[in-house]
C-alpha cells in the first residue's frame, strides 16, 4: 500500500469514526434510551440475586455483565447489521465508490462505536453500582482497564467479521442476528460466571471474546471473583489478543470474498430483501 493510499484509508477511517463520535454529542436523547434501557434487565437480574439473599459481589457480577451488554448490542446492531442499513439507505454504494478500502469503513465504524460504547459501559456500571451499593476490590486497575480495552477490541473485530455477511444477505441475516442476543447472554455468562456452565461449554463460549473478558474483569474487580474464575487472568488476556488478531484477519478475508460475490451477483444494491 502506497503512502497516498494509506493516507486516504486513514482519512476514511476517521470520517466513518467521526460520525459516530460526534453523533453521540448531537443526540442527547441517547442518554435516556441507551443508558436507561440496559439498566432495566440489569436491575431485574440483580433483584433475582437480592431475592435469594446472595452476596453483594453476585449483584456486582450482574451489574458488570449487564453493563457489558451495551458492547454486544452495539456490535450486533451498530456493527454487524450496519451494512444492512447502509444498503437500505443507499450509502453502501457510496462507500464502494469512495477511493478507499471497505475495510477502512469497518475499522472506522468499530473505532467510533468503541469510543461511544466505552463511556456507555462505564456510566451504566457506575449507576448500577450506586443503586445497589456494590463495593469493588480491584486487584489491579491497570490490568482491569487493559482487559476492558482488549475485550472491546476483540468483540468489535468479531463484529467487523459479521458485518461482511450483510454485503450478501438481507432480512434473513438480520433475523439470524437476533439469535445472537439471549443465547450469547447465556453462553458468555453475562449474569453468572461462565464457570457455572462447565469447562466444555465454557471453552466453546470463549470463542465469543466477551466471555473471557467478563471473566477476567470479574476476577480483577471483585473479592469473590477469583473463586469463580474460569481461567487465570493472564491466560484469558493472551487468548483475547489472539482472538482480536484472528477476527481482524477473518474480517479482511471475508469482506474481500463476500464483496466479490456481492458485486458478481448484483446484490450490493438490493433493497427490501
Amino acid at each position: 500500500m502506497s503512502m497516498n493510499e494509506l493516507i486516504k484509508n486513514l482519512r476514511g477511517i476517521w470520517a466513518r469514526a467521526y460520525v459516530r463520535i460526534v453523533g453521540v454529542n448531537r443526540e442527547p436523547s441517547w442518554l435516556i434510551f441507551e443508558l436507561f434501557f440496559p439498566l432495566l434487565p440489569i436491575c431485574s437480574f440483580a433483584f433475582v440475586y437480592k431475592s435469594m439473599n446472595a452476596p453483594s459481589d453476585y449483584l456486582g457480577f450482574v451489574i458488570l455483565g449487564g453493563a457489558m451488554t451495551a458492547i454486544w448490542m452495539n456490535v450486533l446492531w451498530g456493527m454487524a447489521a450496519q451494512f444492512f442499513w447502509e444498503r437500505e439507505s443507499g450509502n453502501l454504494t457510496l462507500y464502494m465508490l469512495c477511493p478507499m478500502s471497505t475495510m477502512a469503513v469497518l475499522v472506522g465504524m468499530a473505532l467510533g462505536s468503541g469510543f461511544s460504547t466505552f463511556f456507555r459501559v462505564i456510566i451504566t456500571f457506575m449507576i448500577g453500582k450506586l443503586i445497589f451499593g456494590i463495593t469493588l476490590h480491584v486487584a489491579s486497575y491497570f490490568w482491569l482497564f487493559a482487559t476492558f480495552i482488549l475485550t472491546i477490541a476483540a468483540v468489535f473485530s468479531l463484529g467487523m467479521m459479521m458485518a461482511s455477511f450483510f454485503l450478501l444477505y438481507g432480512r434473513d441475516a438480520w433475523n439470524i442476528l437476533t439469535v445472537f442476543m439471549e443465547p450469547v447472554f447465556f453462553l458468555s455468562g453475562f449474569y453468572f460466571p461462565v464457570k457455572t456452565l462447565g469447562y466444555p461449554l465454557g471453552a466453546l463460549a470463549s470463542l465469543i471474546p466477551i466471555t473471557l473478558g467478563l471473566d477476567a474483569m470479574r476476577q480483577l474487580a471483585f473479592k469473590l471473583g477469583p473463586d469463580t474464575a474460569f481461567l487465570p487472568v493472564k491466560t484469558e488476556i493472551l487468548i483475547l489478543v489472539a482472538l482480536s488478531a484472528l477476527y481482524l484477519a477473518g474480517a479482511k478475508y471475508l469482506l474481500k470474498k463476500l464483496e466479490y460475490i456481492g458485486r458478481r451477483e448484483g446484490r450490493l444494491t438490493l433493497r427490501w430483501q
Binding site: F45, E182, F186, F190, F192, P193, T196, L197, T228
Partner: peptide, 26 residues
C-alpha cells in the same frame, strides 16, 4: 425449520440464564 429454530432458541436461552443464576447462587 430455520424459522422454528430461531423462534425457540431465544426463549430457551432466557430460561437457561435464570436456571444457571439459580444454580450459581443457590
Amino acid at each position: 425449520w430455520i424459522f422454528a429454530v430461531i423462534t425457540i432458541i431465544r426463549p430457551l436461552a432466557s430460561l437457561f440464564i435464570i436456571i444457571f443464576m439459580f444454580r450459581f447462587a443457590l
